[in-house]
Structures are given as structure tokens and as C-alpha cells.
Design a protein around this nucleic acid. Structure first.
Length: 508
RNA sequence: CGCGGGGUAGAGCAGUCCGGCAGCUCGUCAGGCUCAUAACCUGGAGGCCGUUGGUUCAAAUCCAACCCCCGCAACCA
């Protein structure tokens, strides 16, 4: 059993600042990472930036900057966004990093030596203003949809990767769950989509360009540069030391990746081209790729033209970091498309965070203060059958994370809190306060236990709130240790429940 | 016959793989409680589960046909 876990987000294209979709992927990865760290010693969470290609040049030119200088600024903004959202990535890879460039050269050379790259003519329709080839399906009335001009037929000598050679093997590895190298594509609909397309046939792909200076030159023919997507995919191994002999142990420890998180637009690259490249060099395939859905904003596609692009920073201003992380990932099931709106966020915030979880913490800690001055001692014969009920709620937590169902994981917190609210109501501690202090103490103790476990789950989802709760109930136990032993309830270790602070103020 | 997603209460969504009392959040109405962030709890009203046909003891779920909406070309995960 390997004691390591490797999770990645895509590297985001550095032609513009990040929006809420990028944040969605990255927060999901962060939640999984934080939870995995409880039980796995070596967790590697990779994110980064994709910095080559013509669009980067264009964006830089528009700002009168050199491409690299422009990328540096964008990368700063990426890192700043991640810091604001409490993203604890292990490493941030840039495709302009030396280590990455060396990896790409080494990998492509190996493919070439292997006979998987050959030279051939690429004939296509080239749009001059776009400076790129357009596929026939892109054309509108035979014209470039962006420029309304007729593309010219152009022939270019390119290098091709023998993608077609790996088709059968890929189909087998995706389909056969018992295969040692089984490569899983999730959710299932997406897998079917990929398989359907694969069965239609697979062509070799051009992996080089002749007129694109802002890219990595081919090691065996410096007159051409490497197609950005081929370059970009290799980030997943360059970041963990594939090309660096002194880092061999690191690469060995983490490769293959446990999960590549991504959105559906780039599914094909990750589920066909990337694994085929790995197969070509006999490297193990990632265990799974998980493709989550797209947002629409109030029923409309998120687009600059419409002007409805949401940025995570906007949400953080309204709800704070923790709530933003929570709200994004519970907006709709992880894996399908969904619609979001500020009204929806507000509703969910008040319903789940303010009224349910926040208020639960507040009412229980208040009573602990009021009736026992914060000193609630452990009841006899604890844990009693009543409180052990919550083990059933906690039980699927690890499974949800392993299945990349971050939304279901978060739901557990809500379930715990709902269970707690009901438990309080059934036992009416304010009545017990008049008649039976011992019974009262037991009820409050159990309620505090529920709060403790809300904090434990929260340490992955809403880290700041987790710390606040931990302080409020004066917990001394290591929160990771508690998370590691979810199957058995740990008692309270603090001696004094403090005055609660409002975790999630209601928003009117 | 291009590919894919979707149509479930006033709104937003789960449930569909694997058929078995139609569920959740919000809203709404009535009640309870008074520890709490005007929070919490209980109950009610509100559904031809897009349409039609089929399979079945039994269909939101499986099969067939059809209708409607949204993506697949972009700046994008």
C-alpha cells in the first residue's frame, strides 16, 4: 500500500485572470488534499499555469509586454487568488520553468527515439488574422467566424504523434476494471462519451508548429515548436521530478497520479492524448480523471461578452473565504453541470451555514456557558447508544473523498448539524436545567461532541471555521488524529467551553 | 438521422444506473419551543415526475416513438 497521494488541477492558461470556474476545481482539490493528509503521509497537490502559445503572445502584445513579463504578472494574480482562498498547494508548476522545459524536451525526444513521432504534411485551412488552422466544422459559410474572412489552404510539414496506435489499448484500459492498469474516467457519462468517440476512430495528431515562437522548440528539429497542449500535459510529471535524476525517488513516490481533476472541456486531452503519451513510454497511467461540470450564471453561459463572469474574490467579499468554499462546492452535484446565482448562494448560506451549522454551535456553546460555566464533564458510560448514532452519518466521509464526491462529503456536516438540532429539541435541555442537571450535562456533552465532529470535517472544507470551533470548545486533541479515527468517537479533551463567536452571521 | 446534457410542487434541485409509499432547500399556511444568529422543532397545502404507447403484480426509474429547452463555434474550468 503506497503511503502517498497525488492530485492535480489543470494548469490554467495565463492569458487572463482566474474566474470562478478555476476556483471551483482548485477548491475541490484543496478539500480532497486536506482530508487525505489526515491519513496519508505524503500528499502532493499540484496546480500551476500554462504559459505558451499564440494567445499568450497576443494578450502580452495588447499590454505592450514581453510574454514572460506578462505571464509573471498573471502568475502573481493566480497565486494571490489561491492565497485568498486558503489553497494549500504543494507545488505550483509553470510551463516556463526550466525543469518543465527540460522534461518536455526529454519526453519528446524519448517519444521520437521510440518511433512514435514522424514527419508528415499537415494540410488545413489557415486563417491569417487568427494565425491558426481552423477545422472545417469551425467555419460558418466557409468563413472564419471571428474575422468573416476566407481561410486559405495551407500546407505545413509537421511532426505527428502516433496516437492511433494506442486506441485499442486505451479502450481496453478504460473498459476493463480488473486490469492492473485500469484507467478510470469519471463520472460515468463522461467515460461513455470518451469511449463512444474512441470507437469512432482515432487519428494521429500534429504535435508541432512552424510559426509559433512562444513555445518550446522540438529537441530534434529546432525549426519547429511543440504544440502547447502536448507541452501542458507534461506538467503533471515535470512537477514531481521526471526529468531530474536526483528527484527520482520523488517521481517514484508520487507517479502515477491518483486523480486529475478537470472540467469537461479538456476531457479529451486528459483521457486520450495524455494516457497515450504515457503508454508510448511505458509509464503507468493515472488512476482516474474526474471531469466536473460547467457553470451557467442565472441560466446563461458565463462569458465576457455577456459580462456575467463571476470571480471568487467577489464571493469572498460577501461571504468570507470559508463560506465561499462551502457554497461553491455545494451549489450542485460534483460532476454535473449546474446553474449558480447570487440569490442561490445567499439562500444556501443562510439555510445551511447561518441557521443550521452556525446557530447550532451557538446555541449549544451558549448553554454550556449558561448552565455549567463552560465546564461540561464526561458522562458515565460514554459514548452512549444515542451519540454513537452519528457514526452512521460520519461513516461515508472517506468514501466520498475517494470517489471525488466533495459535495456529498460536505453534506455530512449539514446532516450532523441537523441531527444535532433535532437532538437538542427532543431533549429540551432548558427543561432539564430545572429538573435534572446530570441529564442536562449529558445532552450538552453529546451536543458538543457533534460540534467537535463538524469541526473535524470542516478542517478540510472551511479551515478557518474549524480552528474557531476548536478554540471555542477548547479542544486539545490533534484534529488530524481525530479525523483519522472517524470510526470511533473521541471524547472532549478541553476543560472549558468558551464564549462562542458568531461563525456565519445571517445575511439579510 | 452529427454528439451530449436536461424537462420532478410557486422557485431551485436530488432520486433514474439497480423498478417497490415522490424527497431536499427556499417560499407559503398552522402549531410548538424559548437554549440559540427573528434562529430551532412538528404538521399542512401544493406534483398527471415533458407527451404518447409498451413491458411488469408494480414505472419518475426499464423499452419505443415524439415534443420542448440548453451546451458542443468563443474569452473560458
Amino acid at each position: 500500500m503506497k503511503d502517498s497521494y497525488y492530485i492535480t488541477t489543470p494548469i490554467y492558461y495565463a492569458n487572463d485572470v482566474l474566474h470562478i470556474g478555476h476556483t471551483y476545481t482548485t477548491v475541490a482539490a484543496d478539500i480532497i488534499t486536506r482530508w487525505k493528509k489526515n491519513s496519508v503521509n505524503n500528499v502532493f497537490f499540484l496546480t500551476g499555469s500554462d504559459e505558451h502559445g499564440s494567445k499568450i503572445c497576443e494578450a502580452a502584445k495588447e499590454k505592450n509586454k514581453e510574454p514572460l513579463a506578462y505571464c509573471n504578472e498573471i502568475v502573481d494574480s493566480f497565486k494571490n487568488t489561491w492565497q485568498q482562498l486558503n489553497i494549500e498547494y504543494t507545488s505550483f508548476i509553470r510551463t516556463t520553468d526550466t525543469v518543465h522545459i527540460l522534461t518536455v524536451e526529454k519526453f519528446i525526444q524519448a517519444l521520437y527515439d521510440n518511433g512514435d513521432i514522424y514527419k508528415s504534411n499537415y494540410e488545413g485551412l489557415y486563417c491569417v488574422p487568427c494565425e491558426k488552422f481552423l477545422s472545417p466544422t469551425e467555419l460558418v459559410n466557409d468563413l472564419c467566424p471571428d474575422h468573416n474572412t476566407k481561410p486559405v489552404k495551407q500546407c505545413e510539414e509537421n511532426y505527428f504523434f502516433r496516437l492511433s496506435k494506442y486506441r485499442d489499448q486505451l479502450i481496453e484500459l478504460i473498459t476493463n476494471k480488473n486490469h492492473l492498469q485500469h484507467f478510470d474516467i469519471l463520472p460515468e457519462q463522461r467515460r461513455n462519451e470518451v469511449l463512444g468517440k474512441l470507437k469512432l476512430g482515432l487519428d494521429d495528431i500534429s504535435i508541432s508548429r512552424t510559426n509559433l515562437p512562444w513555445a518550446i522548440p522540438l529537441p530534434f528539429d529546432k525549426s519547429q515548436t511543440i504544440y502547447v497542449w502536448i507541452d501542458a500535459l507534461l506538467n503533471y510529471i515535470s512537477a514531481i521530478g521526471y526529468a531530474d535524476d536526483s528527484e527520482k525517488t520523488q517521481f517514484k513516490k508520487f507517479w502515477p497520479a491518483d486523480v486529475h481533476l478537470l472540467a469537461k472541456d479538456i476531457l479529451w486531452f486528459h483521457s486520450v492524448i495524455w494516457p497515450a503519451m504515457l503508454l508510448a513510454l511505458k509509464l503507468p497511467l493515472p488512476a482516474k480523471v474526474f471531469s466536473h461540470g460547467f457553470f451557467t450564471v442565472e441560466g446563461q453561459k458565463m462569458s465576457k461578452t455577456i459580462g456575467n463572469v463571476l470571480h471568487a474574490e467577489d464571493l469572498v467579499k460577501i461571504y468570507g473565504v470559508d463560506a465561499t468554499r462551502f457554497l461553491l462546492l455545494t451549489a450542485f452535484p460534483f460532476g454535473s453541470d449546474g446553474d449558480i446565482s447570487l440569490a442561490l448562494f445567499k439562500e444556501k448560506y443562510n439555510a445551511h451555514l447561518a441557521n443550521n451549522i452556525g446557530n447550532f454551535v451557538s446555541r449549544v456553546t451558549n448553554m454550556a456557558q449558561k448552565y455549567f460555566n463552560g465546564k461540561v464533564t464526561i458522562p458515565e458510560n460514554w459514548p452512549d447508544p444515542e451519540i454513537t448514532e452519528i457514526l452512521k452519518i460520519l461513516e461515508p466521509a472517506d468514501t466520498h473523498i475517494s470517489n471525488v464526491r466533495v459535495d456529498s462529503f460536505i453534506e455530512i456536516m449539514i446532516s450532523l448539524s441537523s441531527w444535532g438540532n433535532l437532538y437538542i429539541d427532543k431533549n429540551a435541555p432548558w427543561q432539564l436545567a430545572k429538573t435534572d442537571m446530570k441529564a442536562l450535562e449529558k445532552v450538552l456533552y453529546n451536543a458538543l461532541i457533534i460540534i467537535k465532529y463538524i469541526a473535524v470535517l470542516s478542517s478540510a472544507v472551511m479551515p478557518e471555521s474549524a480552528v474557531k470551533i476548536w478554540k471555542t470548545i477548547d479542544e486539545k486533541q490533534d484534529i488530524q488524529e481525530c479525523a483519522r479515527n472517524l470510526a470511533k468517537l473521541s471524547p472532549l479533551t478541553g476543560s472549558n467551553v468558551n464564549k462562542p463567536e458568531i461563525l456565519f452571521p445571517k445575511i439579510l
